[in-house]
Design a protein around this nucleic acid. Structure first.
Length: 119
DNA sequence: GACATGACGATTT
DNA sequence: GAAATCGCCATGT
């Protein structure tokens, strides 16, 4: 995490947001993770809310697969923030991830824990 | 510069 | 067992 703190000259008060982006980008295809998992990986100081908020900021960064990040129950809570409400589900289905009722099927199987995978 | 709010989660009552 | 509350930091007004 935070390999290179862009804070330098970065007028944009970056911080852990950058880390969240990094982790999000590392999510393998066909896998999903939760806000809390990322938060736990970055540190207890991080709360799931911040991760979600970070994703909001990630809106401008196409490289950030926000569609692979869902809440603890595997629900696509942030789909409303996408260009279209169905873009998120569509993207997941494209990766063989079934989504029913805005919820990821077999979330446990598709769950990707950065703390373990990136350990 | 202070107040309110936001893609959540865990703990406590 | 369910509902209510706190925590956490950044952003926009």
């Amino acid at each position: 995490m935070a390999k290179k703190t862009k804070s330098t000259g970065g007028s944009k008060t970056y911080s852990f947001f950058d880390d969240v982006f990094e982790v999000a980008k590392l999510i393998p295809k066909g896998r999903v993770t939760s806000y809390g998992a990322i938060a736990a990986y970055l540190g207890t100081k991080m709360s799931a809310r911040m991760v979600g908020w970070a994703m909001n900021a990630a809106h401008g960064d196409k490289k950030v697969p926000a569609h692979r990040v869902v809440n603890r129950m595997g629900m696509l809570t942030g789909k409303h923030h996408f260009k279209t409400p169905t873009a998120m589900q569509k993207s997941l289905e494209k990766e063989k991830i079934k989504v029913i009722n805005d919820k990821v099927v077999d979330f446990d199987k598709h769950f990707w824990d950065p703390a373990k995978e990136l350990s």
